[in-house]
Design a protein around this nucleic acid. Structure first.
Lengths: 183, 183
DNA sequence: TGTAGCATGTAAGCCGTTACATGATTGA
DNA sequence: TCAATCATGTAACGGCTTACATGCTACA
C-alpha cells in the first residue's frame, strides 16, 4: 500500500480533502491551480498547470481521486474529488512518513552574501524592492486569513496563514534592520 | 557572454569568490561541499556531492574557475579557484539578472493545514520535534556567526547568518504560539 | 468581434537526487 | 586492521518548468 507519492502530490491531495469539507462537486485542474496560487504557494509551491494535470492523472491511477465529467454551464469539465482511498493514503502519509525540515531558498540573502561585490547602494535598492514585494505578498495572504475568519472548520488553515504572515513580518524586520545598518 | 548558469552554480561560484579573499590555494570539491553544508544550506541548498563535481566541471568549461592538480600531503587533489572571468560572470549576474522572490518549502506548515486529520496530540508532537530540530540548526548557525566575528571582510556573510538566525527565532516563536493555542 | 479568462493537455529538457563505483589516508 | 573520513566521479531517474497546442465561453 505504501506507494509513496511526491510531497507535492500529497499537497494537492490535501487541497482536495479540504475542498471536500465544504463542497460536493470536486474541483477542476484549473481551480486547483488557483487554490494553490492563493494558499499552497506560501508554504510549499504552486505547481505549473501542466504539473497539476499530470499529478491528477497519477492520483486518478492510484484511485486516490475520482474524476467525473460534469456539465458545467455549457461546457463539459473534468472534476476531481478525493476518494476514501485517497483520504486513507493521506492519513497514512501523515502518520508514517517522516517530516522533513523546511527548505528556504532565499535569493536576496544569497546576493547579500556578495555585498562586497554589490556595494551599499545596490544592496539598498535590492532590499527596498524586496520590502515592496513582501508587502504585496503579505497583503494577499492577509486577505486569505481574513476570508477564513474564525470558523472552526478552517482553524488549521487559518493558523498556517498566520504562520506565513509571521514569516513575512520577520522578513520585513530583518530587511529593514540590515537596510538601516548600511547608512 | 550572457550564458546563464543555474542559481546554484552562481552560489557555488560565490563560495569560491569568498574563499579567494582569504586563501590562495582554492578548494577541492569535497571542501566546497563542506562549506555549503555549513553556510549555503541555511538560505539556499547544499547540493549533493555529485552535483558539486558536475557544477565544477561546468564552471571549468566556462573558464569561470581554474582547476589545478595539487600535491596535497601524499595524495594529489584537484583544487578549484575562481578566475577573473568567473568574477566578472558573477558580477554580471548580480547586476543584470532579476532577483527572484524567496521560496519556502515548509512541510510542518503543510501538515498543520491538515490538523483536522492529525489531531491535537500528533500536532503537538510534530511541533515539539520541529522545535528541537530548529534549536539544533540554530546552534550550528550561531557557531558560524560567532566564528565570523566582526571582521570587516566578512560583514556581509555575517549579516546573512544573522538573517538566518532571525528566521529561526521567528519559527520558534510561531511554533510555540501554535503549540500553546492547542491546550 | 475580439480579448481575457476558463480548461486541458503533450513534449522537450533542465536541475538535482540517489545509487553505484572506486580508491587513498588517518587514526583508534 | 578496520572504520571513518577524504576525494572523485558516472548512471539512472524523478520532479518540475517552459514551450507548444487547442478550443470554449463570457463580456465589453
Amino acid at each position: 500500500m505504501a506507494s509513496r507519492l511526491s510531497t507535492t502530490s500529497y499537497a494537492l491531495l490535501s487541497l482536495l480533502v479540504l475542498d471536500r469539507e465544504t463542497t460536493e462537486l470536486g474541483m477542476t485542474g484549473y481551480e486547483l491551480k488557483q487554490r494553490a496560487d492563493r494558499t499552497l504557494r506560501f508554504y510549499w509551491v504552486s505547481p505549473a498547470m501542466s504539473q497539476i494535470y499530470t499529478e491528477l492523472e497519477r492520483l486518478d491511477r492510484h484511485a486516490f481521486v475520482s474524476s467525473v465529467e460534469v456539465e458545467d454551464g455549457k461546457r463539459t469539465t473534468r472534476r476531481f474529488a478525493i476518494t476514501a482511498a485517497g483520504r486513507e493514503a493521506l492519513d497514512e502519509w501523515l502518520r508514517t512518513s517522516s517530516t522533513e525540515f523546511p527548505v528556504l531558498k532565499h535569493p536576496i540573502a544569497l546576493r547579500l552574501m556578495l555585498g562586497g561585490l554589490m556595494g551599499p547602494d545596490a544592496i539598498k535598492e535590492m532590499l527596498d524592492e524586496y520590502l515592496e514585494q513582501v508587502a504585496e505578498r503579505r497583503a494577499e495572504l492577509e486577505a486569505v486569513r481574513v476570508m477564513l475568519g474564525d470558523r472552526d472548520e478552517v482553524k488549521y488553515p487559518a493558523q498556517v496563514a498566520e504562520w506565513g504572515l509571521a514569516f513575512f513580518d520577520s522578513e520585513v524586520a530583518t530587511a529593514e534592520r540590515i537596510r538601516k545598518s548600511l547608512d
